[in-house]
Simulated assay, not measured.
Amino acid sequence: MHPAFSVIFLTTLSGVGQGLFLALYTGQVYAVAKVLPGHADTAAFYGLGSLIALLFLGAGLLASFFHLGHPERGWRAIAQWRTSWLSREVIILPAFMGLVFLYGLVHYTGWNPVFFEIGQQANIAIDLSMIVGAITTVFAFALFIATGMIYACIKFLQEWASPLTVINYTLLGSASGFTLATGYAAYQGAPGLLKFYGAWAIILTVASLITRGASLIRNARIKYKSTLQTAIGVRHSNIQQKSQGFMAGSFNTREFFHHKTAAFMKSIKWIFLVLVFPVPVALLALGLSSAALGLLAAAFVVQYLGLIAERWFFFAQANHPQNLYYQTI
């Protein structure tokens, strides 16, 4: 397939926003349960953190409009929500953004009434921000699922049609969000949360390496259901295409193939494998040992650049069956 940078930025930027919110709320839950020391100024920490998550989500939403031929008709995408994962994503994303805004607003304004407490000794207070955060967490994972299923449900694109697609979207987005949260905790001066976010950023990055590697191995071993023989109904073992049937290009030749060489595809694969996984882990490990904000910020920047390459490769690797006809250009 021909990768569209609008979709690449939509999925990577929104993934960072989702992962950052999940990191913020997870840190709050651990702090409320007194497993971790919380930040002294919760209004500044969670309010500003939510704003940063919203900026990433908003940038992703803005990028999606460049993928529309008629942006003024974009609202119609919600019409098929019963059957379309794209429609569900269009509904869930702004709803998730609204909930992240509400979560940050509750912290920033301090209007955070306690509804009840759990435990006789721990006295875990369940306040408004905890409830809003729990609901927002459900929407965060629903958005990961909806985004991944847009591609995983297309059965004739066999590289995408796998549960690993949804898993990788979830893990890669979460890893990038926790990596950003690590740098954010260092900036805010929260050493307890810094180590917590950093450890989980490394764990999620390693987990995503395992699942993304599994998808690469799976895709390399795919036996395609459609072949030249099945396409034209001829069972002969040696069939060669000499022409695509016409001289000029078309929508099909532009949008369903990336027009890159095998060497280029191989180089992009190794670029993202290096930038998304080992380099950020090394920078996180070094940054955590010295609480160096520069190293932690570099870890996020490098990982995000690698995610752009990873998402480009994800789209380009999908081999549309129509290329059986248009393979000779």
Rank of each mutant, 00 (worst) to 15 (best):
V114E: 08
I131R: 12
S87R: 08
M97Q: 09
A125V: 04
G98Y: 05
A95L: 09
Q80A: 02
S129K: 08
L128W: 05
W85E: 01
Q80V: 13
Q121C: 09
G98I: 04
F115K: 10
W81T: 09
I78F: 00
L93I: 01
W85G: 07
T136V: 03
L105T: 15
T137W: 09
H107M: 00
V90R: 06
G110E: 15
S87A: 11
G133C: 06
I135K: 11
L93D: 03
T109E: 12
A77C: 02
I131H: 13
G119L: 01
F101M: 03
G133H: 10
F96S: 02
V138E: 01
R82V: 14
A134H: 03
T137I: 07
G110T: 15
E89D: 09
T137R: 15
R88K: 04
V100H: 10
E89G: 13
V90K: 10
F116K: 10
L102R: 06
E89Y: 04
E117L: 03
E117A: 11
A122G: 15
V138P: 01
I78H: 02
Y103H: 01
T83M: 03
W81D: 04
S84T: 09
L99Y: 14
P113L: 00
I78S: 07
Y103K: 01
G110D: 15
W85T: 05
W81F: 08
T137N: 07
S87N: 06
S129M: 00
Y103G: 00
D127L: 05
V90D: 11
P94C: 04
I91G: 07
T83P: 07
V100P: 12
R88Y: 00
F96I: 14
R88A: 02
A95W: 09
V100Q: 12
G98D: 08
V106T: 02
A134S: 05
I131L: 12
A95T: 12
M97I: 11
G110S: 14
A79V: 11
Q120Y: 13
A125Y: 02
W111I: 15
A122C: 15
A134R: 05
L105R: 14
L128F: 00
W85H: 03
A125T: 03
E117R: 12
P94G: 02
Y103D: 04
G98H: 07
F101L: 07
A125W: 08
L93K: 05
V132N: 01
A122L: 14
T137H: 11
V138F: 00
F101N: 02
V106N: 03
L102D: 13
W81E: 07
S129G: 05
F115L: 06
G133R: 01
A77E: 02
L128Q: 01
V90T: 12
D127W: 01
N112Q: 06
A122M: 14
I126C: 13
I124C: 05
G98L: 10
V138S: 06
S84Y: 08
V138Q: 02
V114K: 12
I124H: 01
H107I: 00
A134C: 10
F96V: 11
Q120S: 13
G98S: 08
W111M: 13
N123L: 07
F115Q: 04
